[in-house]
Simulated assay, not measured.
Amino acid sequence: MLEKLILYFVYQTKGHITRTQLVKFLYLADLYSVKWTDKQLTDLDWYYYNHGPWHEDIDAALVRLSGQVVQVREGQATLIQMGVEPLDISTLEISQGLHFMLDNIRREWVGGSPEAQGKVDKLLEYVYSTAPMLAVKDKYERSEKVRLNLALERELLLEELGV
């Protein structure tokens, strides 16, 4: 599923997505899935590391997908762009409900306009304000690798609903 999600976000943004955005989008996809269904989409054990959610398998997946996606250095950012091998997004076999959730993440946080950096800043601010991040970010050094508990977001939802 990790590779499907990467391809989905890269192709739906037409390659206008930074590596930072992609990692945060993947985190949000897993977080929202746990929040609403109590099941994670990927098999990643998310960690707080160097300021944010992270997992080394994302880098490995990007390597496995070389040809379908390419990483291009642009200033201080790394763009993840569509590769030379064309992809029909419908071949990913993503359910309609999942498509809506992923598309909401994409539409909310990606932008190809001058305010794109503002969107990235707001994305980072939002991700850092999620329950799993708040539980660890001020308690550990940024160089420490600390597991994130995505279920904390679901617990907040259930509490808000009075369940």
Rank of each mutant, 00 (worst) to 15 (best):
M133Y: 04
M133W: 06
W54D: 08
G97F: 06
T42F: 15
E85L: 06
T78Y: 00
W46L: 00
I105R: 07
Q96G: 03
V110C: 13
A151C: 09
K145Q: 14
T78R: 01
S90D: 09
G112F: 04
V70R: 01
R106D: 00
N50F: 15
I89C: 06
N104T: 08
D88G: 05
V127T: 06
D138V: 00
N50E: 15
V120I: 13
Q71T: 05
Y49E: 11
V70H: 01
L123H: 02
L62P: 00
Y48M: 11
D121K: 04
W109E: 00
L92M: 05
T42Q: 15
Q68Y: 13
Q81F: 02
T37W: 08
Y140T: 06
D45I: 04
K122A: 09
G75I: 10
E155C: 02
V127H: 03
W109R: 02
L134P: 01
V63P: 00
M101V: 13
M82D: 03
Q71S: 14
N104L: 08
P132F: 05
D43H: 11
L102N: 09
I89W: 03
W46R: 01
S129W: 04
I105D: 04
L62N: 01
V34T: 12
V72P: 00
Y140Q: 06
Q68K: 13
W36N: 11
V34S: 05
E115L: 13
A151S: 14
D45Q: 10
A151G: 12
K137G: 00
G111A: 15
D45Y: 03
S95M: 03
Y49D: 12
H51L: 09
L65I: 09
E93C: 05
R107L: 14
H99M: 07
P132G: 05
Q68G: 04
A135R: 13
D103L: 10
N50L: 15
T78C: 01
A61H: 05
Y49C: 14
W109M: 02
G52T: 05
G67N: 06
G83K: 02
L148R: 05
D57H: 01
T37H: 09
D59N: 08
T91D: 07
D38H: 11
S90L: 10
E144K: 07
Q81K: 14
K122Y: 02
K39M: 09
G75T: 10
M133G: 02
D138H: 09
G83F: 00
R142A: 12
D43K: 13
Y140S: 08
D88N: 13
D43S: 11
L148T: 04
K39G: 00
V72W: 01
L123M: 06
L123Y: 03
G111E: 10
